[in-house]
């Protein structure tokens, strides 16, 4: 259990649900949570080629005197020794730098978008930036804690989708949960083409060991197809497989999935590197 998930704790009922999801994820995947209790409403994350400023809403600064106690209780209940992250460096006196050397990060669905408190909303701009820049996959939790009993990977054949499938297989391997794959047939590709993509990546043997079912869709809207995702499944998907222009014109699959299903999502961005730190 040397890998770590970075979690920004919000000392509110919503924050409790999010932390419970993170703890559950850590237990399933065999990693340790590291909790950050913000003292300022913004922080910076310096990635390799980009710096992202995260502007939190004020709910993240709620009741700081009880935040450590509440987070510790939840972590201990989950079987973890509480470990809190304290920023070592500051770009400005109220602007801490947060380490980016984590293996996973849990983000609220939208960090600073007020609408996300009542609905799923769109993925916030900052979360999108983190997903795009980070080496690690980003966990977006469902609004209320729920256990998951299977892994569902969205596989569309892009490089990010291949990474997502590899990660899904890894989680399935560690957690022992069955793996489902959902593919929407596009660009005149057939079922056989997608299977060949998996073969080309030398994942066939592992897939045979873990695969429960592989669903292919060629009819109906993409959002309608999402009904087939089990409500208690953990969803892994690649993001930004296409360029900006294509996303603007035709929309993004990630946004569709995010705004349609309430499952926990693990998003693999274009800069994801598996086991980068490999501690």
């Amino acid at each position: 259990m040397n890998h770590q998930l970075f979690h920004i704790f919000r000392n509110t009922p919503v924050g409790r649900e999010t932390l419970l999801q993170s703890i559950y994820f850590c237990n399933q995947v065999g990693i340790a949570p590291v909790i950050y209790i913000p003292k300022h409403a913004k922080f910076l994350m310096y990635f390799k080629n980009e710096v992202v400023q995260i502007d939190l809403d004020n709910s993240y600064l709620t009741a700081p005197d009880t935040a450590i106690q509440h987070a510790s209780e939840l972590l201990e209940q989950g079987g973890f020794k509480p470990r809190f992250y304290t920023p070592k460096h500051y770009t400005a006196s109220t602007l801490p730098d947060i380490n980016t050397e984590f293996d996973y990060m849990c983000c609220p669905r939208s960090i600073s978008d007020a609408t996300s408190k009542i609905t799923l909303g769109n993925i916030g701009a900052k979360v999108r930036k983190i997903v795009k820049a980070a080496f690690f996959p980003v966990l977006l939790t469902s609004p209320v804690f729920k256990e998951w009993h299977s892994i569902t990977v969205f596989f569309g054949g892009s490089a990010n989708a291949v990474n997502a499938l590899r990660l899904g297989l890894q989680i399935s391997d560690i957690s022992g949960m069955p793996l489902n794959i959902l593919t929407r047939l596009e660009k005149k590709n057939t079922r056989r083409d997608y299977e060949k993509m998996v073969q080309d990546q030398n994942m066939e043997d592992r897939l045979n060991r873990h695969l429960n079912k592989w669903l292919f869709f060629d009819k109906g809207k993409f959002e309608e197809n999402l009904y087939d995702v089990p409500h208690d499944s953990f969803v892994v998907l690649g993001a930004y497989g296409h360029g900006l222009i294509r996303n603007i014109l035709f929309g993004s699959k990630m946004e569709s999935i995010h705004s349609t299903i309430y499952n926990n999502l693990l998003i693999v961005g274009p800069n994801y590197v598996a086991n980068r730190l490999s501690l």
Binding site: L44, Y46, N49, E50, V51, Q53, H89, T91, D97
Partner: peptide, 13 residues
């Protein structure tokens, strides 16, 4: 600071 520690990364804003 940015030049010293982060290869000169600065926010667009």
């Amino acid at each position: 600071y940015s030049v010293s520690s982060y290869g000169g990364l600065l926010r667009f804003r």
